[in-house]
Write a protein that binds this DNA or RNA. Structure first.
Lengths: 139, 139
DNA sequence: ATGTTATTTGCAATGAGCTTGCATTAGTGG
DNA sequence: CCACTAATGCAAGCTCATTGCAAATAACAT
């Protein structure tokens, strides 16, 4: 018995609407994290009638359900969104010149988290680790 | 012969003005990274006549000169600024409940940077590593 | 000291990203 | 197919940050 996305929505009292389906579909087809505006652009290109506000509201809802990750790339000053399903925890590097984003498959922070908790007495919830630099073409 | 802040400004064709001095002074007195608005508030409390725009312009100028670091804490959605002088490269952890910020004195990323450069063929420029969680009082 | 000039400032306006209020539309379960 | 509530679209508003321009001022030369 496999829980579908629709089941997960329903369990939280949410509905699988036309627009939500479209937002999820773009996120599923896109390997890299999208900003709300970029996602909106993709939807327009795909002839989906949707308001930017609805994009934001869907992203927020999906984030709260834990189906989507919200992240900020280094020094970019906006949020990006990535679907969680089937993806390992990972980080990114972004080219300072052309904006190209590449996934990093490693995360060296498990041990560090324990150390920080001991030192600061915080309970660590999340971390963000984002790199920027210059991609091969822009060097 | 010690180069003063004023010398560094002058070398870049910048001037040490009344407002710039005040901005630097608050940054020097503050151990933790401030947002532009917070810095502006400090200046008002100190009876310094200054416009918020001037705060932004000074922060940008100081950042471009490399005298100040601009950073984004995890999921906060705004920039913060910290004076560089006499401070080691470091990261932060921020309480998700009360917003308290604490410095972390360790950075485990030197080795990782080399690895990323080999894997992605990017030249790594900067990274941001920020934690959030719950401080002792908010747990 | 005083004049000259380019930098800096303040004010107003603008922009980007994101959120909220509200009436209407449309999923969903019965 | 109905009733109920979530979701949507539109307009307006909010926060953080940037830009244009005339007036003020720091820095240097005289």
């Amino acid at each position: 018995m496999k829980t579908t996305l629709k089941d997960e929505l329903r369990a939280a009292g949410k509905r699988m609407t036309r627009t939500r389906k479209a937002v999820l579909s773009v996120l599923e087809d896109t390997k890299l994290p999208l900003s709300a505006t970029e996602l909106f652009g993709q939807l327009q290109k795909a002839q989906v009638a949707i308001d930017l506000v609805t994009v934001y509201r869907n992203l927020t809802a999906l984030k709260e359900l834990g189906l989507v990750t919200q992240l900020e790339l280094h020094q970019e000053g906006q949020f990006r969104y990535e679907i969680k399903e089937g993806r390992e925890h990972h980080h990114h590097i972004r080219c300072k010149t052309c904006g190209r984003i590449v996934d990093l498959l490693l995360c060296p922070l498990k041990k560090l988290t324990a150390l920080i908790e001991r030192e600061t007495r915080f309970v660590v919830g999340d971390h963000s680790l984002e790199f920027s630099g210059w991609c091969p073409k822009c060097q």
